[in-house]
């Protein structure tokens, strides 16, 4: 059986990745009864119920939200009109997407190379390898509020304050522990013979990472990307401290402007929340295909 596997690795990676996963997925998953399906729908419905609640509230006039939220007779688009007119939609999405794109790409890349080295490469001192891994993982326990003040000063000292880099650099840094946890965890279980095959095949370090391991890690990479994008879309503490130029506002910063000290426009916030939620769900739906595409990986592990 293993010879068949190795043969598969000799196929050029591009073709290999393009192999259609679809036919395998159906056959290997067991047929399930009606009740399992019903349960899945019920659980999903319960989880989603509060989301319907926001959407309903987002169409309620502000007066109704606190006093009479079930009243369906006065539904209005006012909150959306209000939110859209007050939110700098183009600026906030433009900024956030730019920041997310750079932070997530760089963050995932540096985490992946580090995670690869920490799990697959051979250290002369094993203890150093695991110590370095724990060093990066330690960041998971750090609450963001401990970082705000020093990072602000660091940005000033590096001369990046007031630029995108003021946010990008800390976003990359705080994503590293999470990425490392996920990537090292899954890389540890990665079958060694695939690498050996590639090395025998003459692959260098770069090709090994980029063309052999990375494609096989697609479900994990997709997961990492999704979580990092979600984090950046919702990140508020750093953005509020490190952005003081209205041209640089991010989505979370702009949305928070709805919540002033003496006036809270709940309807507007709900509408804004819906406006932010929908594009993110779409992003998830797109990336999700890659999580599923990873099913082929299972076939080569053995």
């Amino acid at each position: 059986m293993s010879s068949i596997l190795k043969d598969r690795h000799l196929v050029p990676p591009s073709e290999y990745a393009a192999e259609p996963p679809a036919p395998r997925t159906r056959s290997k998953v067991k047929r399930v009864g009606f009740w399992v399906g019903a349960l899945a729908y019920l659980v999903t419905f319960l989880i989603v119920l509060p989301l319907f609640w926001i959407v309903l509230l987002s169409f309620q006039p502000s007066g109704n939200i606190l006093s009479n939220p079930f009243d369906l007779s006065q539904l209005t688009l006012d909150n959306y009109i209000n939110a859209i007119s007050q939110l700098p939609l183009l600026t906030m999405y433009g900024n956030t997407i730019l920041i997310a794109l750079i932070s997530v790409t760089v963050g995932t890349a540096v985490s992946f190379t580090a995670a690869f080295a920490l799990t697959r490469m051979i250290f002369r001192r094993k203890k150093l390898q695991s110590a370095l891994r724990y060093y990066l993982l330690a960041g998971l326990a750090v609450p963001v509020y401990i970082l705000l003040f020093p990072v602000y000063r660091l940005d000033l000292a590096l001369g990046v304050f007031g630029t995108y880099a003021a946010l990008i650099l800390p976003y990359i840094a705080v994503s590293i522990p999470f990425n490392t946890l996920l990537l090292t965890g899954f890389l540890r279980e990665f079958p060694g013979e695939i690498e050996e095959a590639a090395i025998i095949d003459g692959a260098g370090l770069f090709r090994l990472c980029w063309s052999v391991v990375l494609p096989l890690m697609r479900p994990v990479i997709a997961t990492v990307l999704i979580f990092n994008v979600v984090y950046i879309f919702n990140e508020f503490p750093f953005a509020s401290i490190l952005i003081n130029n209205p041209d640089l506002v991010t989505v979370s910063l702009a949305v928070s402007r709805f919540q002033g000290q003496y006036s809270v426009d709940y309807g507007g916030m709900m509408a804004a929340a819906t406006l932010v939620l929908v594009p993110q769900l779409v992003i998830y739906a797109i990336f999700q295909r890659h999580v599923i595409a990873g099913m082929t990986v299972g076939a080569v592990k053995g």
Partner: peptide, 11 residues
């Protein structure tokens, strides 16, 4: 590149 790209935000 990330650092350099960021330069465009400064005013």
């Amino acid at each position: 590149t990330a650092v350099a790209l960021a330069g465009c935000g400064s005013t």
